[in-house]
Design a protein around this nucleic acid. Structure first.
Lengths: 288, 288
DNA sequence: AGCTCTTATGAATCATTGA
DNA sequence: GTCAATGATTCATAAGAGC
């Protein structure tokens, strides 16, 4: 266990090991948001062994059972997952997982779509490139905490006349849809000029070298952290990988608990999180 | 039955009635593409009576059994469907339908996403606007006909800027802009300047009122018709509604069989299709 | 198992411009 | 002239799928 403290508060906890073993050590009803991207079926074989699609649900259910226990009743579970093609067909392991999670007690509240602007290239005679992934939202109850104002975006109209072409406009909008500026507080004060986003997120994958085969872009955990937590809430990522969720937590002033089975990634994650600045401390009485 | 003939060929057939009754009259293995948007569960009660989500799969399976029979072995079935929110949860009838169709023998080849750029406005405390729908592709066999070159698109401007000079790109754009109309074959000749699309379609919904509560934009059937059929192939829409698929077929020179249970929509569809110009006849030997 | 098809993007490397 | 900012170009690579 490696702990990083900021301002006397235990902010970041990185645990090395299998989350199925580590999760039972966490207290019940203690997590505000679980945001994770587990290894997809048949992927990351070199590092995680790869789970066969047929065995995926069986593999995941004991973990999600523990996730259910540690999540607060008003908390949210965001699951990033993608379907694979098996024998010319879309594999059904994702939809089987959804059904299984519901039987386990989870409510399948929403299905966000992550549109990957730079999807993996390729050419096949019977299909185009797969440019989207699931971002599934599950909850324990119909009532959960949600801070919609924290993720508002500039409206279409303000950009239309500024853009030279439709394509420019799309580019701009896709950038602004994720609120590219970190740490900015775009909420109530300017809310008259902002609109709520939809359940389709347009983001590029990061193809820069993170020494991890599958980092998702920081914008994704950032968006859900803003949407479902406030400062000093606790976020859990049981498949922390290179620690992207932890980096976003550090930047946004949320507590983070990460679990990762590969020692090398634990080190990378810790280094990345340590290199990330925490939000500036706000004086109790600030001179204006 | 109302029939429209063009150039001596029976091009458009609109049948009034329940597709479950009408489909058995079609010969087996006769359809190249089925492209349809059936009534979503529990929606549009005023027009279709509405199917309760729990009964949706049971209601659809006898129809899809007939669709399977009439589709050519190399044909494709495109199903536009949207998940509904029931009691604060995403309803599972779509994923249950996918599983049921697979048990019926269909291969679930691909899951396209229709990103609705102007989704229905609204505000809820626990969710954002739903801006996407499924466009599910099913086939009878792993081998099916697909004409990918017919739907190639200009690359992203940013990519072109980097790959080539702006001037080259502008020249190319002028050309392709003129080829963007219906019926044109912008493929092989300029294929080096075009790229293949992904499985995420960005289309606006149609704002104009067609007197039908759920018209999808003509771009959607147009895209799939180009992708999966050639001229004089036969396209079937068992839930023809206001005839959007038929209009696209007429424009693209494909034969169309539409079925619609509401007499008023049959009339609207026929009027719209009749008002649509067929592609210009190409002389067998054209003087140059 | 290996080869191949393919596109968007960040990072790196230079070239050009302007104060 | 120097340095910083901007722009053009190159390069590697990203959670793939079919034969």
């Amino acid at each position: 266990m490696r702990i990083q403290k900021t301002q006397g508060v235990e902010q970041t906890t990185l645990l090395e090991g299998d989350c199925l073993t580590l999760l039972p050590k966490l207290p019940s009803d203690s997590i505000d948001l679980i945001c994770t991207s587990p290894p997809y079926a048949d992927c990351r074989k070199k590092t995680y062994g790869g789970i066969v699609p047929d065995d995926y649900v069986e593999w995941f259910l004991p973990i999600s059972q523990e996730l259910y226990r540690v999540l607060k009743p008003t908390g949210t579970f965001i699951l990033n997952i993608k379907e694979k093609v098996v024998a010319g067909e879309r594999s059904t392991y994702v939809i089987n997982l959804i059904l299984a999670l519901r039987r386990q007690g989870w409510l399948w509240t929403e299905g966000y779509i992550w549109h990957k602007k730079n999807s993996f290239p390729g050419k096949w005679p019977n299909r185009f490139r797969d440019a989207w992934e699931h971002l599934l939202q599950f909850n324990k109850n119909r009532k959960f905490k949600m801070y919609q104002d924290a993720v508002m975006v500039p409206p279409k109209e303000s950009t239309v006349h500024r853009a030279k072409s439709l394509r420019d406009y799309e580019d701009f909008r896709q950038e602004s849809a994720t609120g590219s500026g970190f740490g900015r507080n775009i909420s109530k004060s300017v809310s008259r000029e902002l609109v709520y986003p939809t359940n389709v997120l347009h983001l590029a994958t990061e193809c820069s070298n993170r020494n991890h085969s599958a980092t998702f872009p920081e914008s994704i955990p950032e968006w859900f952290i803003k949407l479902f937590t406030v400062e000093n809430d606790t976020v859990l990522d049981p498949f922390a990988g290179a620690g992207t969720t932890g980096v976003a937590c550090r930047r946004l002033g949320r507590r983070f608990i990460g679990m990762e089975i590969v020692p090398e990634y634990v080190k990378i994650a810790m280094d990345r999180i340590n290199a990330t600045p925490a939000p500036a401390e706000v004086p109790l009485s600030s001179p204006v």
